[in-house]
């Protein structure tokens, strides 16, 4: 992906995710301030920024948790996300991983994946749901991808922190989304786990669009993708990691003030 693509404002119908002039304020505090961000299909994008820059709020807006006060949010070119709730947006194909690993502690790893697997989400469909052989195969494949095959019968709550992060990514994968929003996947991981996670993400991006929010610069570097810097609710700079790290404004925001 070239740096030019990041700076240019593409046509809406070319994008997978299109945020334009989005503002959100909480009791006078502007969490997002006319934020514009465009992701095209098949892109891997890292978003960095200091605390309070609006990274998580941006994800909240995209996934329907928070309604923007102003601005446009479109998915896949033409679907207005500001009118839909979380469940609808998830079913459209936007998966989200939380900052804190959020898995179902009282369910086994297998059950966690079973709950996430694509399919009818209706109440009565769930009542009479049985896993098909094909779905079992998919679960096995994902278990293998996230290296949890041996732990599939364990309660998710008993997994290590890194394993929970992976399980959550696995749950995203088995949802088969078009776009993945991943909030700090490397948080609290060992170096080895971080490295493995980067490999995993690069694997995923082969057939998904991915937005990663991350603090860990080494991790971002290992992703080798375009970077967008958020600050005070809007985009401060975009480009390669080296380019933004050399940006005077970015340096001020991170080190100065």
């Amino acid at each position: 992906m070239s740096t030019a693509a990041v700076h240019a404002r593409p046509e809406k119908h070319d994008t997978i995710l299109y945020l334009d002039g989005v503002s959100v304020s909480f009791d006078g505090f502007k969490a997002l301030n006319r934020l514009s961000l465009y992701i095209v299909a098949g892109e891997l994008r890292a978003i960095i920024g200091p605390n309070g820059a609006g990274k998580t709020t941006m994800m909240d807006v995209v996934t329907g948790k928070t309604r923007p006060d102003a601005g446009e949010v479109f998915f896949n070119g033409g679907i207005d996300l500001t009118r839909l709730d979380e469940a609808r947006i998830a079913n459209l194909g936007i998966g989200r991983k939380f900052q804190k690993p959020t898995v179902f502690d009282n369910h086994t790893v297998l059950d966690n994946l079973e709950l996430a697997i694509a399919g009818d989400r209706g109440v009565f469909a769930s009542l009479f749901f049985r896993l098909s052989g094909e779905q079992r195969d998919r679960i096995d494949a994902v278990l293998h991808t996230i290296s949890l095959t041996a732990d599939s019968g364990r309660l998710a709550g008993s997994l290590s922190h890194g394993q929970k992060q992976w399980l959550e990514i696995g749950m995203l994968l088995i949802q088969d989304p078009v776009l993945l929003l991943i909030d700090e996947p490397a948080a609290g991981m060992t170096d080895a786990e971080t490295e493995a996670t980067a490999v995993l993400l690069k694997e995923i991006v082969k057939d998904h669009s991915v937005v990663v929010v991350e603090h860990d610069m080494a991790f971002v570097r290992s992703l080798g993708c375009p970077v967008t810097v958020l600050h005070e609710g809007h985009v401060l700079a975009s480009g390669t990691l080296d380019a933004v790290q050399a940006n005077q404004q970015v340096i001020e925001v991170y080190l100065g003030r």
Binding site: K65, F104, V123
Partner: peptide, 16 residues
């Protein structure tokens, strides 16, 4: 049970 333990996770999985 998933709703009991992590309601918003369930929503983001696409359940109403």
């Amino acid at each position: 049970v998933a709703v009991r333990d992590a309601e918003s996770r369930v929503r983001f999985l696409g359940y109403r």
